[in-house]
Simulated assay, not measured.
Amino acid sequence: MFGCLVAGRLVQTDAVQVSADKFVFNLPDYESVNHVVVFMLGTVPFPDGMGGAVYFSFPAAGGQVWQLLGFITNDKPSAIFKISGGN
């Protein structure tokens, strides 16, 4: 359903579905990631009027931090997101 691309790396299509409406990509060496592209593969569209929020998560003192990056929809099926200073 989704793909993820970090510059200089292979495309990832191995999102893990962690709940009915949540998918997670593991980004090794996340500290070196400046931008990430998230895109729909075109196999399964969102229901009409729906879209998906894109978050970046990283570990921090006291637990995980979740940073909202933006969104994708059927009308905007891909986007480039800037990752601002993880830790």
Rank of each mutant, 00 (worst) to 15 (best):
M1P: 15
M1Y: 06
M1G: 13
G3L: 04
G3P: 00
C4S: 09
V6F: 02
A7M: 07
G8I: 03
G8C: 00
L10M: 10
L10Y: 10
V11M: 02
V11S: 01
T13Y: 02
D14M: 05
V16I: 11
V16A: 04
Q17E: 07
V18R: 04
V18Q: 01
V18N: 04
F23S: 06
F23K: 06
F23R: 01
V24I: 11
N26D: 13
P28D: 07
D29Q: 12
D29I: 09
Y30T: 03
S32C: 07
N34K: 12
N34Q: 13
N34D: 11
V37W: 06
V37T: 14
V37F: 06
V38I: 15
F39T: 07
M40Q: 15
L41Y: 01
L41E: 14
T43F: 02
T43H: 12
V44P: 02
V44W: 01
V44Y: 03
P45V: 05
F46E: 06
P47R: 11
P47Q: 07
G49F: 07
G49W: 09
M50I: 06
M50Y: 10
G51M: 08
G52M: 05
A53E: 15
V54R: 05
V54F: 07
Y55S: 07
F56L: 13
F56K: 04
S57K: 15
F58Q: 10
A60V: 11
A60T: 11
A61N: 15
A61S: 13
A61T: 10
G62N: 13
G62S: 06
G63N: 13
G63D: 01
G63A: 12
Q64A: 10
Q64R: 14
Q64M: 13
W66K: 14
W66A: 08
L69E: 10
L69G: 07
G70T: 07
G70F: 06
G70E: 00
G70Y: 05
F71I: 07
F71V: 02
I72F: 07
T73A: 14
N74C: 08
N74V: 05
D75T: 09
D75Q: 15
D75F: 11
D75N: 11
D75L: 10
K76E: 06
K76T: 11
P77N: 10
P77R: 00
S78M: 14
A79F: 06
A79S: 14
I80C: 14
F81N: 02
F81D: 03
K82H: 03
I83A: 01
I83W: 06
G86H: 13
G86W: 06
G86E: 13
N87W: 14
N87C: 11
